[in-house]
Simulated assay, not measured.
Amino acid sequence: MEPLRSMIGKRIELELSGCKSLLHGEFIDMGSDVLVLYSNSKYIYTPIHHLQHLRLSEEWENHTVDASPDSKMDLTNISYRKMLMNSRGIFTEIYLGGAHSLHGYVTGIMNDFFVYHSPMHQTVYIPVNHVKYLIPYPPNMTPYSLSQEHFPVQPSGVALSRTLDQQLKKLEGQLVVFDLDEHPHKKGLLKSVNDKIIQLVLACGDDIYLHIDHIKSVHLP
């Protein structure tokens, strides 16, 4: 990790697997499995296993760094899991790749997934390995500027399991949407989950089979 640590304090360009755009910002810290950038008055936390390349950014060579935002995130001895734990109850943006980001709150963290509450999608189950980056917002901000009266964080009525495959077993027989509805073959009736293979019934009645390791998010319509 020492070669990467030598880049701390410098303006960098970062390419992440599954991201359409490069990230630019000041590389301010890192842990054993997470990198932290600071860009446009925001902290950007990204798991290191998504790193494709990191290099000095010519675009930022003459950029003036603005003042640090008011953030509750702890930069001491950071790790990916600690980042998730610290983000609970804080308005965050989470990017999973593709065309969309989620905006809402982390409400629970299990072994290999966490629970996220979004005003657009309600309860979303997200595998920890599929988060490209997470951005915490200042404490006075809420998603879409909703007041707390209009956007209370409601816990899911489904009891939580330790692993995502166990959680999906509880959803058998229900309509589900995978990956934020970005693919027509990833929404339908969840028929069964066995040995990490998901059997999904599409609207036309056809069965399709998916591997759970390639599911980026799950929510009920």
Rank of each mutant, 00 (worst) to 15 (best):
R88S: 12
K82D: 11
H103P: 01
E26S: 11
F113V: 07
E26Q: 15
Y43I: 03
H63M: 09
R11Q: 13
Y80W: 15
L23P: 06
S6Y: 01
V65Q: 10
M120Q: 08
L16N: 08
S17E: 13
H103Q: 12
H24P: 04
Y105M: 06
H117F: 11
L23H: 10
Y80H: 14
R88H: 08
K72H: 12
N111M: 11
H103C: 04
Y43R: 10
S68Y: 10
T92R: 02
Y80D: 11
L23I: 11
N77I: 05
V36H: 01
W60F: 12
L14P: 00
K82N: 08
F113N: 01
T107V: 12
L35H: 00
L84E: 03
T46V: 11
P69T: 07
Y105D: 07
D33K: 05
L51T: 03
M110G: 07
L51Y: 07
K72I: 09
A67M: 13
S32W: 04
D33M: 03
Q122V: 06
I48E: 15
I48A: 14
V131A: 09
S71T: 14
V131P: 02
I126D: 04
K42I: 06
H117L: 06
S21W: 08
K42V: 05
S79M: 07
A99Y: 14
Y133N: 04
A67Y: 11
M83E: 02
A67S: 15
S21G: 10
H103M: 03
L75R: 13
D29P: 00
Q52P: 03
D74S: 10
I126M: 05
D70W: 03
S41G: 12
S17C: 06
R5L: 09
N86E: 12
R88I: 14
D33I: 06
Y45R: 07
S87Q: 11
R11I: 06
H53K: 12
L56N: 11
Y38L: 08
P47F: 01
S118W: 00
S21H: 13
G89P: 02
M110I: 09
F114A: 05
C19Q: 09
K72T: 13
T46M: 09
M85I: 15
D74E: 10
R11K: 11
I94L: 03
V131R: 06
L35Q: 02
E58S: 10
A67N: 14
H53N: 14
D74F: 02
L134E: 05
M73V: 10
T64W: 08
Y116S: 00
V131F: 02
D70Y: 08
I28A: 00
Y116M: 02
S68V: 13
G98S: 01
E59P: 04
Y133H: 08
N62K: 08
S41A: 15
K20E: 09
K42W: 02
I8P: 01
Y133I: 04
L14Q: 07
L102P: 03
G25D: 01
V106G: 01
V106S: 05
H117K: 10
G25F: 01
M30K: 02
Y80F: 15
E59Q: 10
H49D: 10
F114Q: 01
L23M: 10
G108C: 10
M73W: 09
I44D: 03
L37K: 06
S71F: 05
L134H: 09
L37W: 03
P69L: 05
C19H: 13
A67W: 13
S6L: 08
G89Y: 04
P69D: 08
N77Y: 07
K20M: 09
